[in-house]
Write a protein that binds this DNA or RNA. Sequence first.
DNA 1: CGCGACGTTGATTTGCCTCAACGATTGTGG
DNA 2: CCACAATCGTTGAGGCAAATCAACGTCGCG
Lengths: 197, 197
Amino acid sequence: MSDQFLPLVRYIKKYIELSDQETAYLCSLLHYRFIKKKQIIVQPGFVCKYRTYIVKGSMRAYLIDQEGNDHTLALGIEDWWISDYYSYIHQVPADLFVEALEDSYVIQMDYNAELILMETYPKFERFFRILSQRALAYMQRRILSNLSKSAGERYEEFSQKYPLLIQRIPQYAIASYLGFSSEFLSKIKKQRVKKVN
Amino acid sequence: MSDQFLPLVRYIKKYIELSDQETAYLCSLLHYRFIKKKQIIVQPGFVCKYRTYIVKGSMRAYLIDQEGNDHTLALGIEDWWISDYYSYIHQVPADLFVEALEDSYVIQMDYNAELILMETYPKFERFFRILSQRALAYMQRRILSNLSKSAGERYEEFSQKYPLLIQRIPQYAIASYLGFSSEFLSKIKKQRVKKVN
DNA sequence: CGCGACGTTGATTTGCCTCAACGATTGTGG
DNA sequence: CCACAATCGTTGAGGCAAATCAACGTCGCG
């Protein structure tokens, strides 16, 4: 068997122990895929079939509202997950697009496979519990940050926390993730340079 | 044994089945408490020890920033959970206050009890997985709503979704939850009345 | 009764948006 | 391999949604 799934297996082993048998079964349920830059893997109106783990590359999940403005829910690079989580969990049509920002390699698990996996080896309940608890705690922090901080402060915080993303993710995507326009991000950066001097 | 824990047991049984033995063990780990209006059960600097399920009453989780403004992360009434989830999950000092808005009765479970419970009866892994997955999906929707909608639209959506909260929760708490000032909420409501006529 | 908590209203200010024009860089088809 | 288009970021002018501040009304509670 190829070890294309190794990054994800290593990721999971940070949270639960896996025997060779369990690992093999897990891998039998996974799909390894190449996603070309700008390719869309989730779109509104279609159920989000997969949980997507990024092996290499970067992706963005975003909403387009009635006025045509886009709003970024999530950004992801190596070792992160991305999807329209609401659509995935409830198996209802998505509201979001999920799109590759770079040529990417991903590992996907579909909803039924996930259920079967948890039934076969209940320890995966534990893995998904930990995963979603951590994501939830993180989301709460993000909401607080959005509620309590100015655009400049949020950008500052983001740069500290994710210097890698600042380098690789287009500015319009970062601005949209942080909740302001990309023009305004330009102006923030200009102010910032002044401050440093 | 008293059945003060019945509401929570019923809640849990919506997601997993429980034998009498499991139920009894669960209840042995719970605490039933009365919280007086304005009483604070979580505060910054102290680890959030409990997950809190509201049996009766209402509560609010909020952050006070450097300028002294408060920002509401969560509101809760009967049959909802509330806590500083980040603090609880990671067992680190909280950033938030959690306060009763009315005289309230709650059921609390502490972090160690939760771990023991899941070890003793692994099916509780499943319960907490489902719980956090649903909360996570909900949080993502809230972020999208905050990113893509105006103050008026968010209030409209909130009123549709939680008519009970509109009646029972003070306006300043709702405004703060939705991310704008309570003065502005006054003005929104005024506009709204005009529209209806 | 009197005080404190909550909500309202109006005047003014401001953080961020919108629009438009313009470089710089990247990608692509001839 | 070049020309041209598309994409991305920057800059400035003007505008708007919502904040801030201050004053006032009202209600419930000690």
